[in-house]
């Protein structure tokens, strides 16, 4: 534990990592963007404590994170509802709160959504790689030794630990539920899927299986298959792509997903809805809705205008 630690990790929970906005532009080298899986909740958490929207913060998947603050600090919790408490008292999400030196923050388990974000005024100090401190565990990059937090870790801050006490205006709270509806456009091989599979894709919900992490989510539902066996040469792959392997159970690629793949790329979640990918928890229902021609840019412009007004510099 560092002597200067502003925060001590008492329990890392299921998987808590340091994330920022990620390191785009390196997929051709096999380096995924990574970064906060739910970019919106992450940006909101930072905004509430007065940080730049992309300052390093904690991303806690599924719950179980316990932290002790060694200094007075302003913090905010957003994203999945995990019954956060400070010193045993419930803490509201989506507003900045002050904690005292010695206070213990606990997150229990995710009741809706998958990932909670904890931003601390000043932002976290962590290892940078290619311009980002995002933790990418498969290559041990960024964050704290490139891994998930564990008991005993000490976290430092990059700036003063106190910020303004902002509250999120009511209409702004991102709504999460146990049934995510993701709007999507055709992936390059959508027309290679059978007619029946294409109907299923947009009409019947899937369930996210326990094989769900920052790399991807394997879905269970009606079998999605190609008309004929597809012998593809591996090619580039983007997050938010629904890959359709021959076993019929599609895989949704997420923030840490592989940069290349060899299966039919059936759908691609639109840019404005990609933040929701970070809130897919095992057991959740996932539906895909086809975005019409011209609809996706409108949704994106509207949402960027709304959120960009509140959070300077933020865009989906």
């Amino acid at each position: 534990m560092s002597a200067k630690a502003a925060i001590t990790v008492l329990n890392g929970g299921t998987q808590t990592t340091v994330q920022d906005a990620g390191r785009p532009g390196h997929r051709h080298l096999g380096i995924p963007r990574s970064g906060a899986a739910d970019r919106l909740s992450f940006a909101v958490a930072n905004h509430l404590v007065g940080n730049a929207w992309d300052a390093p913060a904690l991303e806690c998947a599924l719950g179980g994170l316990h932290l002790r603050f060694e200094t007075e600090a302003t913090i905010a919790i957003t994203g999945a509802h995990m019954g956060a408490q400070v010193q045993g008292m419930n803490v509201e999400r989506n507003r900045a709160v002050g904690v005292d030196a010695g206070d213990i923050l606990t997150l229990s388990y995710a009741r809706e959504g998958c990932r909670a974000y904890v931003a601390i005024a000043g932002g976290l100090a962590a290892t940078s790689f290619l311009g980002s401190v995002s933790t990418y565990m498969p290559a041990a990059l960024g964050g704290i030794e490139g891994r998930a937090l564990k008991a005993g870790d000490g976290l430092g801050l990059a700036g003063p630990a106190q910020g303004p006490a902002r509250t999120l205006p009511k209409g702004y709270i991102p709504s999460l539920s146990s049934h995510a509806v993701l709007r999507a456009r055709a992936g390059p091989e959508l027309d290679r899927l059978s007619a029946e599979s294409r109907r299923y894709l947009f009409n019947t919900p899937f369930i996210a299986t326990p094989a769900t992490d920052r790399m991807g989510s394997r879905l269970r539902g009606d079998r999605i298959v190609t008309d004929e066996p597809l012998s593809m040469t591996s090619g580039p792959l983007l997050p938010g792509t629904l890959q359709c392997p021959p076993d019929g159970q599609p895989i949704l690629a997420l923030a840490d997903g592989h940069c290349t793949g060899g299966y039919a790329r059936g759908l691609h979640v639109i840019q404005a809805d990609q933040w929701l990918l970070g809130q897919i928890a095992p057991g959740m229902q996932i539906s895909f809705r086809r975005a019409l021609d011209g609809e996706a840019p409108d949704i994106l412009q509207t949402r960027n205008a709304v959120w960009g007004t509140l959070i300077p510099g933020f865009g989906f």
Binding site: R27, T233, S234, G235, P236, L238
Partner: peptide, 18 residues
């Protein structure tokens, strides 16, 4: 473009749609 990703017989160019 935010990503220019060559493949064996294809290339994907991604961008910020905003």
């Amino acid at each position: 473009f935010t990503e220019v990703m060559p493949g064996y017989d294809s290339l994907v160019a991604a961008f910020d749609a905003a």
